[in-house]
Amino acid sequence: MEALSPAESRTVEAWAAQYPEIQIELRRIQEALSQYARSFELAPRPELKREILSKVQDKPAPPLPVATPTRPNRLGWIGLLLALLAIVAVVVLYNRSRQLEKTVQRVVAEKDSLQQDYNRAINNLELIQNPTTKIIALTPPPDDDTPIAPDAEVTLYWNQNDRTPLLAIKNLPEPPAGKKYQLWTIRGTQAPTPAGMIDFDSTTFQTMPQVAEVDVFAITLEDAGGSPVPTSKIYVAGKVI
């Protein structure tokens, strides 16, 4: 092959690539030539082997095919990392979504509560502003010389059509534990009728249950569960004018 001109060499190489028989023939020629060359065998001096081999540097053993897949490994790690990130993201987003859901529920509940307060306030305002509504000041009975709370005062809005008394505590002593103020209605000379327990802690108006015909409203201090008949002195009372 080396004896050919570059153009001839290219042609032979092209043929050899195309026809395996030519490749085989070239190989045979080469091997025949090397056999021929072997006929000139000449033993080098014996020490030369050791001299030559001592100059050959050790090479590291080639890596085993099994130990090579660093790239797939790396991709594997990246994949694992992405998967973990995705899981973390899902958990975070799920928790966030749960929190938001709870917040929405809470806000809706607050909104409902405020809506009720608002409606009540509007109702109360309408009742108060209604020209047919009477404003009754409940105060200690004038015939009581030793009132329990001389400065006690409760305002009661009363509408004959609506018949649900609306209370606003202006001044009442704090009830002792286990006791609550109770509203009564009195008609003429009849015995007082229970008209509901009063929430002392309420800071705004409180609407009482609907009542029947009434001449006088009165408030006493009773056991927290309420009483069918008054057991204490009247703290405050007021006439329906």
Binding site: S34, L42, P44, K49, L53, P62
Partner: peptide, 26 residues
């Protein structure tokens, strides 16, 4: 030789050094 074992080179030397040296010297 392919597993970078020097014994391969030593064996190759024993087997073919005379042929190679003959060609080179020629």
């Amino acid at each position: 030789l392919k597993s970078n074992n020097k014994d391969g080179l030593s064996l190759l030397y024993d087997k073919y050094a005379a042929a190679l040296y003959g060609v080179i010297h020629r």
